[in-house]
Write a protein that binds this DNA or RNA. Structure first.
Length: 1141
RNA sequence: GCGGAUGUGGCGUAAUUGGUAGCCGUGCCAGACUUAGGAUCUGGUGCCGAAAGGCGUGGGGGUUCGAGUCCCUUCAUCCGCACCA
């Protein structure tokens, strides 16, 4: 063979590799493993475009490199084959999505094969195949039967939770509202038990606000919604309250955050994830509601308005009327404590259990032995139990319950003999109860402990979350989200109507509107007031839709002087402002709020003089001390909605018995998708699965929603390790050997979706003992996007008063339009050009006729920007000769096209860089490039384009150069006459230097994923070898090995010529030998005063003194120092000499 | 608004991490060969200047013998999040 016939060569070798299963990987534990993974594609109907292979080429190069270095490399590929487009297509055509998906996959496969990737196709996975999604369903079942135990910070089987319940220990569920019942677990009905467990399950069913997309007929996850519209299709999305399956990813928020520190992922991506998780620490603060007077409440006036009397009017714990008497009792009791009481007080006092207890405390007409007001728990120690005592105790318990106190009793003996158990029981009870806000009025502050026993005021409070507790003294109002359940409770009668109106208005605003005009300030006063926890001032309570119901407590404290949103709100409604932080610079508080976290606290009582950072700490301290609130961490991350009202996804393996969900038996998996007549919701609005004939399990109805697109992709990398296993998702042996992905390559657009979910599931599977690792990928590379270049052309439009505009089908060269718009071209000239275009038109003239154009006036013309398909544009020049009018201009209708050309006779198009997409007509497929230049050229070129991580618009300028390089490489082996000219001569020093310089560079670059620079190194190497006229096997052979990951076909071909019968795939990466690069001399740059004046070749072993002599003698240096004495001579060996005068 | 990134010839980019700015490739200019071609080869090509030389890494300032690289400041572009308290 004489010429570089890439087409033939590539086809032959692809065939050879396939036939010999050369890329098949065994679990060969004798070799070190290396796992190189690409994010698997969704097989869309458009096929691969030139952007897809960018990452695949990079990973292929890396995989090949690792193989040549003796690693056992796992490099698989598969398809994320469930998804919306296939289903949308199915709805339109009635064709089963599996069929279109299969077709698309075949097309993808064909295209990938064409590029010579070294994937082990025997391990291919498809998420839509039952033998794959069987395990996705299996994982779902595991998630359902597990809960996150915050004690040891990991997921556990739900059984461990039930055991706790049986022991009476009730962990606080993620929702924050624990069940509290004195009944034993076993005595609860199945229904209640399941309901309780649902509060804890990692996969759970709950009613919550979701992103509902009516056009797609399904809910979407937060990361599938961008700017209030669906990511796929761009349909509007609204908030809707629905019963939904969700994944409790929020339980993992902190670990997902921590985990980022130990993985080698790009910093911007980690930052995006941190942002998305959105951890912020601060404090909750309770603002007690000020009891309105009966007159204000309206209770006196009319019973019908009594429903607004829900504000507890300050439950003084002691009945004031009998206080004096109670005080006596209390005093007596304190003196005559029983042993048990004494012992228990030792345990409870000083907040030993984490909560403040009081003893001998009056609650209405009783004295409780011990009470924790912030939890509403009374602990009683009884003496001997006789019957009347029992009855009396029962009565007390009942009574206290009415006042919202839990009662727990122990006998004297119990306390003494088993203090530890008693303590544990109290602890468990405490942690199961919600917090209450307890406060005291300032007058009570000065009372003696005994006198305080009179009771403290327990009132309902609005709890807010703030990251700036240091600005607590700057609070001038409190705002609730319109959805906040307190709104209804607190609104006073006179504001009832307005508040209701406002809520209706807020609901009517779609998510998109709400996001679109963030600047629009709306809100409504409720009539209610709360009390400032430190100053006791009355603070008005507002509602406003700038407060989000789903974050924190759905309520904020308004500090208009130090929060820009509060500032805007206050300004709009004329609310006062209080400065409490002194800025470090001049600040005009009239103009804006001072939000910075630097400065000194002022007007803030105990915080005065503290720096913001200290003040925050101090404020939290005080808030906790006073039982006003608690230091707290909030996450922005929401639980991920897991159900989709769609057909083309994994069925959720759940059935319902009496309305209670149960998981299917694992042995019955996979639960395959049923056949349906249509891929649309039923008439009753049920998801498509409800159309199936018998969608049931053992006679019970099955769940009809399916899993979201990200389900399969959240664990697929582990399936590749053991893809044909039918008993497990992967064997322990395979998992232990392959462990995790060493290098994962894919786009950064998955930063908050896939890459977060896959980390979540990995951690979960790790917790449950199914995986040996808790992060899926050690290293991640984000390849940049290859953007498309969209072309546009202007169409002349005639605007008419009172009539619709006329599109003329006259298209103008972009520069002509610009010249006209910039007045470089007169209207007459333009008109002339338009009329002339009729002589050069395509087809006959239909409409508008020339007469209409003759009447054109300056006021009646406009230009319409239209898309042109990329295949008809070469370097921004419209190739109108190939123009296919039926497809290639948007808004086509039957017509004849005319073109107004510029002076060069060209039609110039304008262009924009956009995402490559079928709908934008800017897709370039690899097929044409491969046909024209070959896969090796495309591979090299895509790498040569620039750094892998960088996004860049696709252009083919420069592809010639890369192709030329391959031909030059070829010419090292074959001369023009097609004769093999490789010799067996020993290479000389110069040749070895060139080779080893390149080996060094190629090795370093590949390790750094700097593929563009190594391509350039190859070019230099080939250029230099050609110059040296080097055709020696000992040099060329090694060169081939280092080029082979990039251009495997040509290298395999040339290799086979010099090493017949062997494959370069099995070769060894050459070892860099630094000896060949050793130099004796160096061309020193010599500068005078930092300015380069000459270079001087000097021996490398020269020291400063010799160098100085040589340099100073030099006439050029003499000239520049102008006879002055050098102040200093800087000499860096092997680098530079600088003479300073 | 917050967060992240990037600014270097006509263009894509490179620079061993503070040490000769512009490698490699395109494009352009000139030449050679020629079957007159969008092939191949050779030379040139940051800008200004006839040259000597001067100026040059978005702008301004600083540190240093020396700055594309470090620090401060400012501008522009792109990406992500976006009323997250």
């Amino acid at each position: 063979m004489s010429e570089y016939k890439f087409g033939e060569i590539e086809k032959n070798w692809q065939q050879y590799w396939r036939d010999n299963h050369i890329y098949k990987v065994e679990d060969d534990t004798s070799k070190p493993k290396f796992y190189v993974l690409d994010m698997f594609p969704y097989p869309s109907g458009a096929g691969l475009h030139v952007g897809h292979p960018l990452g695949y080429i990079a990973s292929d190069i890396y995989a090949r490199y690792k193989r040549l270095n003796g690693f056992n490399v796992l490099h698989p590929m598969g398809y994320d084959s469930f998804g919306l487009p296939a289903e949308q297509y199915a709805i339109q055509t009635g064709q089963h999505p599996a069929i279109t998906t299969e077709q698309n996959i075949n097309r993808y496969r064909e295209q990938m094969d064409m590029l010579g990737f070294s994937f082990d196709w025997s391990r291919e996975v498809k998420t839509s195949e039952p033998n794959f999604y069987k395990w996705t369903q299996w994982i779902f079942i595991k998630l359902y039967h597990s809960w996150y135990n915050t004690e040891n910070n990991r997921s556990e089987s739900i059984e461990t939770l039930v055991e706790k319940f049986k022991k009476g220990i009730i962990p606080i569920p993620p929702s924050g509202f624990p069940y509290s019942s004195n009944a034993s677990w076993d005595s609860l009905s199945e229904n209640v038990q399941q309901e309780i467990l649902m509060q804890y399950r990692n996969a759970y069913l709950s009613e919550s606000y979701v992103n509902w997309c009516p056009a797609l007929g399904t809910v979407l996850a937060n990361d599938e919604v961008k700017d209030g519209v669906s990511e796929r299709g761009g349909h509007p999305v609204e908030r809707k309250l629905m019963m939904q399956w969700s994944m409790r990813i929020t339980s993992y928020a902190d670990r997902l955050l921590q985990g980022l520190d130990k993985i080698d992922w790009p910093e911007p991506l980690k930052e995006t994830q941190r942002n998305w998780i959105g951890k912020s620490s601060g404090s909750s603060v309770g603002f007690r509601l000020t009891p309105p007077s009966p007159a204000e409440r309206g209770t006196e006036s009319s019973p019908s308005e009594k429903k607004y009397n829900k504000v507890p009017d300050g439950v003084a714990t002691a009945d004031k009327r009998i206080w004096e008497k109670l005080k006596e009792f209390s005093r007596e009791n304190r003196k005559n404590q029983t042993e048990g009481e004494k012992r228990l007080w030792e345990e409870l006092r000083n907040s030993n259990l984490g909560f403040k207890f009081r003893r001998q405390h009056a609650i209405q007409k009783f004295i409780a032995d011990f009470v924790c007001l912030s939890k509403g728990l009374v602990v009683e120690v009884d003496g001997e139990i006789h019957n009347d005592q029992k009855e009396y105790d029962e009565y007390r318990t009942q009574f206290l319950r009415e006042y919202n106190f839990e009662v727990i009793r122990f006998t004297n003996d119990e306390v003494l003999s088993n203090t530890l158990e008693v303590k544990k029981a109290i602890s468990a009870k405490l942690s199961s109860l919600p917090n209450r806000i307890v406060g005291s009025t300032s007058e009570e502050e000065n009372l003696s402990p005994l006198e305080r026993g009179r009771g403290e005021v327990v009132r309902e409070a609005i709890e807010v979350f703030t990251t700036r507790p240091d600005t607590i003294f700057g609070v001038t109002f409190v705002t609730l989200a319109p959805e906040n359940s307190l709104v209804d409770k607190i609104t006073t009668p006179e504001y009832k109507t307005q508040v209701e109106e406002y809520i209706t208005y807020a609901k009517s605003r779609s998510e998109r509107e709400r996001q679109a005009d963030v600047k629009k300030i709306t809100g409504q006063f409720t009539g209610a007031y709360v009390e400032h926890p430190f100053t006791g001032e009355d603070i008005p309570v507002w509602i406003g839709d700038y407060v989000l119901a789903g974050y924190g407590t759905g309520a904020v404290m308004g500090v208009p002087a130090h929060d820009s949103r509060d500032y805007a709100f206050a300004k709009h409604f004329g609310l006062p402002r209080k400065q409490v932080v002194k800025p470090t610079t001049d600040w005009d508080f009239e103009k804006e709020s001072y939000d910075e976290k630097v400065g000194t606290s002022i007007n803030s009582d105990f915080l005065n003089g503290l720096e913001v950072k200290e003040a925050i700490i101090k404020a939290i301290e005080k808030i906790e001390e006073e039982n006003i609130g608690k230091g707290k961490t909030n996450f922005r991350l929401r639980d991920a909605i897991f159900g989709r009202q769609r057909y083309w996804g994994e069925p959720i393996p759940i059935y319902y018995k009496d309305g209670i969900p149960y998981t299917m038996d694992e042995k019955d998996l996979p639960k395959q998708l049923p056949e349906v007549d249509k891929y649309l919701p039923t008439e009753d609005g049920e998801p498509p699965l409800a159309r199936a004939n018998d969608w049931s399990y053992n006679g019970f109805p099955l769940e009809t929603t399916t899993m979201p697109g990200w389900a399969g992709s959240s664990w697929y990398m582990f399936r590749y390790m053991d893809p044909h296993n039918t008993g497990e998702f992967a064997s322990k042996k395979a998992l232990d050997y392959w462990k995790d992905v060493d290098v994962y390559i894919g786009g950064s657009e998955h930063g908050t979706g896939h890459l977060l979910y896959v980390r979540f599931w990995t951690k979960f599977l790790y917790d449950m003992g199914f995986l040996p690792v808790d992060e899926p990928a050690k290293k991640l590379i984000n390849q940049g996007m290859i953007q498309g270049r969209s072309s546009f052309i202007y169409e002349l439009k005639i605007t008419q008063t009172n009539l619709p505009d006329i599109n003329t089908h006259v298209f103008l060269s972009d520069d002509v339009v610009n010249n006209y718009l910039n007045s470089k071209l007169s209207f007459e000239e333009l008109k002339n050009g338009i009329l002339l275009s009729y002589n050069d038109s395509y087809g006959e003239i239909i409409n508008p006729d020339n007469s209409l154009l003759i009447q054109l006036t300056e006021d009646s013309i406009a230009f319409d920007k239209k898309r042109v398909a990329i295949e008809f544009v070469d370097n921004d020049i419209l190739n109108y000769k190939n123009w296919n009018k039926s497809i290639y201009i948007s808004d086509f209708d039957e017509a004849i096209y005319r073109f107004v050309k510029n002076e060069e006779g060209e039609i110039v198009t304008s262009s924009e860089v956009e995402k490559m997409s079928k709908s934008k007509w800017n897709v370039v497929t690899p097929d044409d490039i491969v046909a024209q230049y070959g896969a090796d050229t495309l591979r090299l070129y895509e790498m040569f384009l620039g750094p892998l991580e960088q996004s860049k618009p696709w252009n083919t300028q420069g592809i010639e150069g890369v192709h030329r390089f391959l031909r030059k490489l070829w010419s090292l082996y074959y001369n023009r006459d097609g004769n093999n000219i490789v010799t067996n001569d020993e290479p000389n020093a110069a040749e070895l230097k060139v080779l080893h310089k390149t080996i060094k560079k190629a090795t370093e670059d590949i390790e750094n994923f700097s593929f563009n620079t190594s391509v350039s190194a190859f070019m230099i190497c080939v250029n230099e070898l050609l110059e040296l006229d080097c055709h020696k096997k000992n040099v060329l052979e090694q060169l081939l090995v280092i080029v082979s990951p990039y251009a495997p076909h040509i290298c395999e071909e040339l290799w086979s010529k010099i090493n017949p019968g062997t494959s370069i795939i099995k070769a060894e990466w050459p070892k860099f030998n630094p000896e060949y690069l050793v130099e004796n001399t160096f061309h020193y740059p010599i500068s005078v005063n930092g300015k380069l004046r000459l270079t001087l070749e000097l021996a490398l072993d020269l020291e400063l003194a010799d160098v100085e002599k040589a340099v100073m003698q030099h006439e050029v240096v003499q000239k520049w120092i102008e006879g002055k004495q050098p102040k200093k001579i800087v000499f860096v060996k092997g680098k530079i000499v600088n003479v300073v005068v």
